[in-house]
């Protein structure tokens, strides 16, 4: 997991994106073939004497090669791609995931049957080989959930829930991004996608469900509380229970902070804590210009230890 995450429809890992990629290959090869045949016909037509074909033969060629053949090819392509538009079958007790697009980050909620609901942020984990329904919604403006390697993009529309049914087929580290302009911070609204084996996935779910690790350095926790960070952010089983910003319970288990924007380091957290708006335009988190850098570092050390 050291290579940079892939965000490309040409490196598919989900069932739908793999089918789309295969279709793209078939279409590209077909288009090249047809282009070649048309170019050849053009070459032959230009080189041929004018009376090579009679009027009737010429009209027939236009009708067959220009109308009938393309219609048949399009019909064959339609029959080939239509089955891909069928949604994957969802087993009755499948894992449910909600992804909520917010300006400018992602709230992710996991619902496994018989287990309490788990909320994290800016990261989507999927068990390989299992079909998952992702319920997409938004409380503010229209966002679009797009993990190019997983499936086509789908909008997150305030007031309704769109369902994206996906299945990750290859484990690995990937990346997704907001694909609908949603405000000033739109370009820096990304997230990591981690496809993992079902056993690893269950372990990760269990780890995430545990309460936050107690702070080794109580000063950092106190600083966090003193600046009122808990008014917007939640760290489970502490006094921080805000719901406005991302949940930070196991922040350090993620690869990035600030929605795929900055690496998970103490310095990056400290920087973002002091001056989020300059790093992410339009973000709802205020700047704290009066905060001494030492305090920001203390908060950074505290959060970076929340494994």
């Amino acid at each position: 997991m050291t290579s940079p995450p892939r965000q490309s429809a040409l490196a598919p890992f989900g069932a739908e994106a793999i089918a789309t990629f295969d279709t793209t290959v078939v279409l590209t090869i077909g288009a090249c073939l047809i282009f070649g045949i048309v170019a050849l016909l053009f070459f032959v037509a230009v080189r041929s004497p004018g009376d090579r074909l009679s009027h009737t033969q010429g009209m027939r060629l236009v009708l067959v090669a220009g109308a009938a053949l393309p219609t048949l090819i399009l019909a064959a392509l339609l029959v080939y791609v239509l089955p891909q538009m069928r949604p994957l079958p969802v087993p009755p007790r499948a894992l449910g995931v909600s992804a909520v697009g917010e300006q400018f980050w992602w709230r992710t909620v996991y619902r496994a049957p018989g287990q309490p609901v788990l909320e994290t942020a800016n990261e989507l984990r999927l068990p390989v080989g299992q079909t998952v329904t992702i319920e997409l919604s938004s409380p503010d403006v229209i966002h679009s959930f797009w993990v190019p390697g997983l499936a086509g993009k789908m909008d997150m529309i305030p007031g309704r829930i769109n369902r994206l049914i996906v299945r990750a087929d290859k484990p690995g580290l990937y990346r997704g991004q907001c694909a609908e302009f949603c405000g000033l911070g739109h370009a820096v609204m990304a997230f990591d996608v981690i496809a993992m084996s079902p056993a690893d996935y269950d372990r990760w779910l269990a780890d995430e469900r545990r309460p936050a690790v107690p702070a080794a350095d109580p000063a950092g926790a106190a600083t966090f509380a003193e600046y009122g960070c808990g008014g917007c952010h939640a760290i489970r089983d502490t006094q921080a229970a805000g719901r406005i910003g991302p949940d930070l319970t196991h922040l350090a288990a993620r690869r990035h902070i600030a929605a795929g924007m900055l690496p998970m380091t103490v310095d990056a957290i400290a920087r973002f804590t002091r001056d989020a708006p300059s790093l992410k335009p339009g973000v709802r988190m205020p700047a704290y210009p009066h905060m001494p850098p030492a305090d920001a570092q203390a908060i950074g050390r505290y959060l970076a230890a929340l494994k």
Binding site: L74, A75, L78, V79, L82, P83, M85
Partner: peptide, 9 residues
């Protein structure tokens, strides 16, 4: 072409 999708969707 209009009818075919009904077979699949």
């Amino acid at each position: 072409f209009t009818a075919l999708p009904v077979l699949f969707l």
